[in-house]
Design a protein around this nucleic acid. Structure first.
Length: 652
RNA sequence: GCGCCCGUAGCUCAGUGGAUAGAGCGCCUGCCUCCGGAGCAGGAAGUCAGAGGUUCGAAUCCUCUCGGGCGUACCA
């Protein structure tokens, strides 16, 4: 018992020494406090200019203002309470009260050494690794995936990878659209127009071999539907029977969904997106919950009726007439809506699924990676979910633990770029953090919602083909001696990497102008730039094995101690050490573009280092140190790109 | 009407209340007998839509105006 108690009270905590920003933040906050400014944030940020050091603390001015003292005098007082001698060679006050910190080279050397020895690259694990559900991609199975699905799929995947790396338990959820009247039509067409064989694996439809693309199938089905009154009637019968769970009909619908899902899986495979069969939890799986959702809302006294429809009035939102918004959960004909399904999904994810034994987890945080047009919808759904208690915590996360014996801390509502998020409701009952992670729309070069010249959408498959073929052409041009297989492999990694990076590097909240050239560009701030830096480093190690037989095998070739001295080395060193704080920011704000910007700066710092500091031509300790620096840079670039779902290559 | 988002270099976009607003593309000037030139070093290019306000300090926060987008009761 005592052992357990000890574990709970003193969780094994990794030391946080390597997150520069956090370390400085803690030390300076303490100094501020000692100097008389309680609760004043230190406001530590990397310095804007080299002459201002590596980091600057901006908190003194505001604190002094609050205390009505002279900011420079106060900064001096803070400095007296502040001992950074172990990590800084100089700490000075400049301007109206900035504290500029110049990190010590020896300290940088130490930090780089421990970072290199750590498989997590100094990214510290959360003390309580809660379960985070990431809901992303979620294509409608009736149609083929197009460019509009790219952002959710890629951004969601990068966030899931990042959260997982940090140490959260990540549950990927592919909330595919697999329900609704159109599925009755599609299934009916499959059942009635194609020959069917029973095989060991279930049904086999002749259609499967004919359907080259889903959109073509959809078009055919639609024509069939429209061609006669009889077909329409058959189709409607199908819908009714399907929705009542008729065992004769369900297999047809299932087969169609499988067909469509296999198309999605092909796309995911080519994109390198980690969404598998087990991550698919379509709308239809919540069907059984829908009546219960409505019933629960009724029991909580939230359910009202208006013009025949059932729903919840929300004072927090206004409708066109300025009256409370009415969120409908059951139509006047008895049917349910997406708001109902979303409520059911929240319920499922936040405890109901575990209670039912369907899954073995319950969420502490749920991220919805969908376009920004749904912001209002989610704000409303989250509000209702909280009122109804669908998102109450059944698992005690860090919030509950932190508040043991005290009133629960009231946290400020925060946003993840759109929807306000409340972690605690008005009764201070711990709640799951439900966060909409919105992204902007895909626009054409005319600034209008993106469409092809024919008015259609660009198929994702076509975009991937184009990305790889453009990259392939470039690879052949740069390196004509490579084998066909090699070219193909490089073209794939470079092309897909560029495509993903083009999307991820943009602030997700802004609208996105679709451009073949921009999306598939391979120069400048693109994924290939980082891949190229990585390949250059690998090239150094290959050459190093050849030129220095004593070090062959590479085992200890890069194991030398790092001693930064040249300015370019120092700049690279500081950049490398900023990896942990960058990854944390990405996870907290759900902004992969922060990581992209970081990696671009890192690769840039390496390129300068590469130009200014010869590695293989240097000797002794300098050579060993530079080799080690190269190795660590390669590790960070590889890991950083991996968090974005982008692969590295040994050669390109 | 109401709500939310946006307006930054020729184009596409970064930018956490901090010091002289940054990248990429395009344009101009240098750099491959030298670890991979998909690169490096540098240059030109800005009334941060406009006007007020808060602040020691505003592209960032508040108000208004102009311009654009999205959403707004039985689609998702």
């Amino acid at each position: 018992m005592l052992f357990v108690f000890t574990l709970i009270r003193f969780p094994t905590k990794k030391k946080d020494t390597m997150n520069i920003r956090k370390t400085l933040e803690q030390r300076i906050s303490r100094a501020l406090q000692t100097a008389g400014a309680a609760d004043a944030p230190a406001l530590v940020v990397p310095s804007g200019r080299p002459e201002f050091g590596d980091y600057q603390a901006n908190g003194c001015m505001a604190a002094a203002k609050k205390m009505k003292t002279n900011p420079v005098e106060f900064a001096k007082a803070v400095l007296e309470k502040l001992d950074l001698s172990d990590l800084a060679e100089k700490v000075e006050i400049k301007g109206p009260g900035f504290i500029n910190i110049f990190l010590k080279r020896e300290w940088l050397d130490d930090q780089l050494g421990s970072m290199k020895a750590d498989e997590k690259l100094s990214v510290s694990q959360p003390e309580t690794p809660e379960t985070v559900v990431v809901d992303y991609s979620g294509p409608n199975l009736a149609k083929e995936m197009h460019v509009g699905h790219l952002r959710s799929t890629i951004i969601g995947d990068a966030l899931a990878r990042t959260l997982q790396f940090i140490g959260y338990k990540v549950i990927r959820q592919n909330h595919v659209g697999d329900w609704g009247t159109q599925f009755g039509m599609l299934a009916a067409f499959l059942a009635l127009q194609y020959s069917i064989k029973q095989t060991e694996n279930g049904l086999f439809f002749e259609a499967v071999s004919h359907i080259k693309d889903l959109d073509g199938y959809y078009k055919l089905a639609n024509e069939w539907f429209k061609s006669s009154e009889e077909n329409q009637q058959k189709s409607r019968d199908f819908v009714v029977r399907l929705q009542s769970g008729d065992p004769e009909i369900v297999p047809y619908w299932k087969e169609f969904c499988n067909l469509s899902l296999s198309h999605a899986r092909t796309i995911y495979g080519r994109l390198g997106v980690l969404l598998g069969k087990n991550d698919v939890r379509g709308e239809s799986l919540y069907n059984d919950y829908l009546p219960q959702v409505v019933k629960t809302l009724d029991e909580k006294g939230l359910l009202k009726e208006s013009e025949g429809a059932k729903g919840v009035f929300l004072n927090e939102f206004k409708n066109k007439d300025g009256d409370p918004f009415f969120m409908i959960v059951q139509k006047s004909d008895g049917g349910y809506l997406y708001a109902t399904t979303d409520l059911a999904a929240i319920w499922f994810r936040c405890g109901k699924g575990k209670e039912d034994g369907t899954v073995d987890w319950t969420a502490g945080r749920v991220l919805y990676v969908t376009d920004s047009r749904q912001a209002q919808h989610f704000a409303q759904v989250f509000t209702v979910a909280k009122k109804a208690g669908f998102a109450d915590r059944t698992w005690l996360g860090h919030l509950a633990q932190a508040s043991q014996g005290h009133p629960a801390p009231v946290q400020e509502a925060k946003t993840t770029g759109g929807t306000p998020v409340a972690r605690l409701d008005e009764t201070s009952k711990p709640q799951v953090s439900l966060e909409h992670v919105p992204f902007g729309m895909m626009l054409g070069t005319d600034g209008r919602p993106f469409k092809t010249r024919e008015g259609g959408t660009v198929k994702l498959m076509d975009l991937l083909d184009e990305a790889e073929s453009r990259a392939g052409a470039l690879v052949k041009e740069k390196n004509p001696d490579l084998s066909e297989d090699k070219v193909k492999d490089i073209a794939h990694k470079v092309g897909i990497g560029a495509l993903k990076y083009a999307d991820l590097s943009q602030n997700r909240t802004s609208d996105y102008v679709f451009s073949w050239d921009k999306m598939l560009s391979l120069e400048g701030n693109t994924a290939p730039y980082m891949q190229y830096a990585y390949a250059r480093i690998q090239s150094i190690f290959r050459k190093q094995d050849e030129t220095s037989p004593a070090c062959q095998g590479g085992d200890d070739a890069d194991n030398g101690a790092i001693h930064v001295s040249e300015p370019a080395e120092r700049a690279l060193a500081v950049k490398l050490l900023q990896f942990p704080e960058t990854v944390e920011s990405v996870a907290e704000a759900c902004m992969p573009n922060i990581l992209c910007a970081y990696l671009y700066e890192l690769a840039g710092a390496f390129m300068s280092f590469y130009e200014n500091c010869p590695v293989l031509k240097s000797e002794g300790a300098v050579r060993a140190s530079r080799l080690a620096l190269c190795r660590l840079t390669a590790m960070v670039i590889q890991q950083g790109l991996a968090l974005l779902g982008i692969e590295t290559l040994e050669q390109m």
